[in-house]
Amino acid sequence: MAGAATEFAVAPAPIWRLLWLWVPLLGIAVLIVSTTLQHEQRTPMELGYTVPFLLLLMGVLSWAFFRRRIQLQHGELVVTSTFYRRRAAVSSLQLDKARIVDLAEHTEFKPGLKINGYGMPGFQSGHYRMGDRRKAFCLITDASRVLYLPLRDDSVLLLSPEQPRALLDALNAQATR
């Protein structure tokens, strides 16, 4: 079935990583409430706008954290991660150079500078620059098993599928068709 979409599970990211988001936002909310109530020039009405906005922001960023998908469909690898989506034709992948790596051991594959991304310790999503200045699109939830996929345009996909070997085998099978 060349046209059927195949989905590959993304390696799970522990929910406690959201504390990197929730704790600072709750700290900001507490700071805003305490300073608003201490100053006579500010009104409690300001809290009616600010606190719900922070709660909405927390909700949207939490929703985005769970928005992760890797699909192989119609000869394309489609990666959806937080606010980002990247499509790459299987024919544009250099599968002979693809590897499954542990980023702790192979630091040359680690994403470096965040260009347009969403990240916290142990979770990286979006557009980054590698140490050698190449562009990388990342969906990293488990740095110990990352599928490194170089593209012919000299950019890179860094993905954390639950079973990286299965995805690589499916990509190779698709490429030989």
Rank of each mutant, 00 (worst) to 15 (best):
L77D: 09
V79I: 10
V79N: 01
V79P: 02
T80I: 03
T80E: 05
F83G: 03
R85N: 05
R86Y: 01
R86C: 08
R87Y: 08
A88S: 15
A89K: 11
V90E: 12
V90H: 09
S91M: 02
L95Y: 02
L95Q: 06
K97I: 02
K97V: 04
A98K: 06
R99V: 03
I100K: 03
V101I: 10
V101C: 00
V101T: 02
V101W: 02
D102W: 00
L103N: 03
A104Q: 13
F109S: 06
K110G: 07
G112Y: 01
G117T: 05
Y118N: 07
G119D: 08
G119C: 02
M120T: 12
F123Y: 15
F123E: 02
S125F: 05
S125D: 12
S125A: 14
S125N: 11
G126I: 01
Y128F: 15
R129E: 08
R129V: 04
G131Q: 13
G131P: 03
D132W: 07
R133S: 14
R133L: 06
R134F: 03
R134S: 10
R134T: 04
A136Q: 11
C138Y: 08
I140S: 08
T141Q: 03
A143D: 14
A143R: 12
A143P: 13
A143E: 15
S144P: 04
R145G: 09
R145C: 11
V146I: 12
L147A: 11
L147M: 15
Y148V: 15
P150L: 12
P150F: 14
P150I: 13
L151N: 07
L151Q: 15
D154M: 02
D154R: 06
V156R: 13
V156P: 01
